[in-house]
């Protein structure tokens, strides 16, 4: 059971940031899995009062507050229209509505969990994260960074006309994914993200050259390049196999979509 000695409902980002510099402090996201941790925490920092909920639509992007819930994203009409419903598709299998009403985008992204559905999709949508001190950093770069003491305030998705497809394989309906794949196509540029390998998602970029059988070729190539591992849910060998299947299926979807 997780224990906090102190609970801070921060009144400013500066206050939250200063507190977060202490090793014993933790910035709360949605609060999921509170009972899971054994860690004893000095100060739990709550950003609820800092106006970080909600999606702001600007001319060229969607700026998503860190405390926006997964359920908000799942049900966000404009975002889902813009990106072929891929947010709904990738989020609906996460535990249940009551979980997604709490879990936040910021918490999911900041944790950069290997099993994340959200990170895989956001990566394919070329998202960035906005950190209080460090400013805007691409999600791809953020995924490679070590421990970050900064405060993640927003996730920014650039507005683009993309065809997107998301595929995940799970051993049971609302379990963590064994592997997930999100492919996004912008003209001839294709980004394929592979997550739950079970490590953090990685992105691969291709320029389509119009030859036949490209989906299969790209899928096989990614499967041979990507690093997979085994855990209690699946072996690396199965993940590599799935990678071929799911990448090919995702690419087939977006190539077809384009043609239709």
């Amino acid at each position: 059971m997780l224990t906090f000695n102190r609970y801070l409902r921060a009144t400013s980002l500066e206050e939250a940031y200063t507190e977060a510099q202490k090793k014993s402090s933790v910035v709360l996201g949605g609060g999921m899995w509170l009972r899971l941790g054994k860690r004893r925490i000095g100060t739990a920092i709550d950003l609820s009062d800092l106006g970080l909920c909600g999606v702001e639509e600007t001319e060229d992007s969607y700026r998503i507050g860190a405390y926006t819930t997964l359920r908000d994203l799942e049900c966000h009409a404009a975002l889902n229209t813009q990106y072929s419903g891929v947010l709904r598709e990738s989020l609906r299998a996460i535990v249940g509505v009551q979980f997604r009403n709490l879990a936040t985008v910021g918490g999911s992204v900041f944790g950069r969990f290997g099993f994340s559905d959200v990170v895989t999709v956001l990566l394919a949508l070329d998202a960035s994260v906005e950190l209080y001190k460090a400013g805007v950093v691409s999600l791809e770069r953020f995924c490679t960074m070590g421990r970050v003491n900064d405060i993640l305030t927003h996730v920014i998705i650039p507005k683009r006309s993309l065809s997107v497809s998301y595929h995940a394989q799970r051993n049971s309906a609302t379990d963590f994914p064994v592997l997930n794949v999100c492919a996004a196509r912008n003209g001839e540029q294709v980004t394929v993200c592979v997550g739950a390998r079970p490590a953090r998602a990685v992105a691969y970029r291709y320029t389509l050259d119009g030859t036949a059988g490209k989906a299969e070729r790209i899928a096989n190539e990614i499967a041979s390049r990507a690093v997979f591992d085994s855990n209690t849910r699946a072996t690396a060998r199965y993940r590599r196999h799935l990678c071929c299947v799911l990448v090919r299926r995702a690419l087939d979807d977006i190539l077809e979509k384009e043609e239709a």
Binding site: S172, A173, T174, T232
Partner: peptide
């Protein structure tokens, strides 16, 4: 034992 929680020991939901 790896399956030491309902997060790891998956019982059926109503979707399956």
């Amino acid at each position: 034992l790896s399956e030491n929680s309902l997060m790891q020991y998956r019982i059926p939901t109503r979707l399956e």
